[in-house]
Amino acid sequence: MRFLLTVTGASLLASPALADQIKVGVTIPELDVAEYHKPYVAAWIAKEDHSVAANLAVWYQLEKRGSDEGETWLKDLRQWWRRAGRSIEMPKDGLSGPTHAPGAHDMTFDTRSGPFADLDPGSYTLVIESVREVGGREMVNVPFKWPLQAGQTLMAEGETELGAVQLALISSID
């Protein structure tokens, strides 16, 4: 069961003086299976028509025995592959990253540069897709309205291949 939780903080002090950061949290669950491979994970911002507004990260086997064999399985991130991956020359700076072990992994993005900088106000979905060799696949969606409000934290939970997914706006004094 996926749920969506909105926490609106008391602080509504958003002003140009603040350097806003977006935190995207992805939890990879620990799985008790005979053969475990760290999952391939893609994170992106989808528009309402499912097209990609911004790519955030792709974690995959960057090199295998000196070749780029790891790219062979990128298509198994099949929504990301369809929406973005097949049109991107991989590896790509700022997007490609190695696979991650089970646990909570946070990414932060500055709202004034990087993938969130060019988002027009509107409705979007944070999509996290995870697929594991000889394992399963899962996608978790976190719908949100841009711009996020100060202190706002949105959360969703995966069932099988993903744990908690979090999208939050963190303000700090510049």
Partner: peptide, 8 residues
Amino acid sequence: FTLSGENQ
């Protein structure tokens, strides 16, 4: 039907 990577 669908592949990614090089030299497949």
